Simulated assay, not measured.
Amino acid sequence: MKKTILCCFLLTAFLTNAQTDTDAIMMGKQNFCVGSIYQYSSWKQYWEGSIKRDNLNMGTVSTKSISMMGNYGISDNLNVLFSLPYVQTNASAGTMSGQKGIQDLSLTLKYMPIEKNIGNGIFSLYVIGGFSTPVSNYTPDYLPLSIGLHTKTGQIRLMGDYQIGKLFTTISGTYIKRGNATLDRNTYLTDEIHYTNKVDMPDAIAVNFRFGYRSSRLIAEAVLDNWVTQSGGFDITKNNMPFISNTMNTLKYGFNSKYTFKNLPELSIVSGCNFVVSGRNVGQSNTVYGGLFYILNLKKTQKEDEK
């Protein structure tokens, strides 16, 4: 859905993106939405394979992050998005110290080839492609306190949205292709011994469903998200640390909102939360976030400069 004034992986200890690439909102041509989101996530219990456990040696594992994000309208139907998070992890008990640093730069192209009236509503189809790459030399071999998996990732998403009046529903499916990760050691153990520092990372599929209320000033939605690791992963071995190529599955639900100020329509505030209800080799995490975004009309600025 084209709106000029609208802007806008959970794997337990890792950053949950602000979902700008999974909503059915497009920036207008030569509009640039930029802002920042703060997020806090924590868990005490986790799944070792399918068995739910406590880890008293670590207490509560928490992740704080602040992300710079942007969305530029190349045209009304084609947007380019970026995200760059700074992440800090912590454990409330035990001797393991957390990590902190800049994580991965994400770049995404979002294309809407179809927008048409069907029945009493408007149907929109989106094709989305994205790429992420680490931008700092953090180590992934320190789970669950690593700030990321330190692997290049590509993804392709197909998304459909249907809105009747101010009510909408959106569903999307994503395939995530992950490159190899490199460790600072020459051997490691999965379900067998590997004499190399290269880790073959399993791919993943994610399905996202959301429904709610959408107007020019307010968006309020409920979200259901399912992330499933594909073949190549394995379970955490008993009483052992997790490993980056573990199978990591999550099912979570959440709520998102976005409010645009009436007297300053360029400024909006976003907030939300999500909760993991089931998983495999992940923590049962609760997450909250909030942020501010501002839209710059670069076309208007360009015209003023030409005068």
Results as ranks from 00 to 15, higher is better:
Ser136Ala: 12
Glu192Ala: 07
Lys299Glu: 11
Asp184Gln: 12
Met27Val: 08
Arg157Ala: 13
Asn186Asp: 10
Leu218Thr: 06
Arg210Thr: 01
Ile176Ala: 05
Cys273Leu: 08
Gly94Asn: 10
Lys238Ala: 10
Thr20Gly: 15
Leu264Asp: 11
Asp141Trp: 00
Tyr253Leu: 02
Val127Glu: 15
Glu304Pro: 00
Thr301Gly: 14
Lys2Asp: 09
Ser285Cys: 15
Asp161Gly: 09
Ser172Phe: 01
Leu298Glu: 06
Gly101Thr: 05
Gly59Ala: 03
Met1Gly: 14
Gly154Trp: 14
Asn263Arg: 08
Leu11Trp: 00
Met248Ser: 13
Ser42Ile: 04
Arg210Ile: 00
Leu292His: 13
Asp21Pro: 15
Phe255Val: 02
Lys299Val: 00
Phe131Gly: 04
Ile51Leu: 07
Thr229Glu: 05
Gly119Arg: 09
Tyr289Ser: 03
Asn186Glu: 10
Ile5Arg: 07
Cys33Val: 05
Gln88Ala: 15
Ile269His: 07
Ala13Val: 11
Thr89Pro: 00
Ser92Met: 04
Gly254Val: 07
Gln284Tyr: 11
Ser278Asn: 15
Ile37Pro: 09
Ile37Arg: 14
Ser75Gln: 04
Val282Phe: 12
Gly129Ile: 09
Ile244Pro: 10
Leu298Lys: 06
Asn239Ile: 06
Leu6Glu: 10
Arg178Ile: 10
Tyr86Val: 01
Ile236Gln: 09
Phe293Gln: 14
Ser231Met: 02
Ala91Pro: 00
Ser65Gly: 02
Glu221Met: 02
Gly148Ile: 03
Ser216Lys: 08
Val270Phe: 03
Arg214Ile: 05
Asn197Pro: 04
Thr151Gln: 09
Tyr195Met: 04
Pro202Gln: 03
Ile193Arg: 12
Glu304Thr: 09
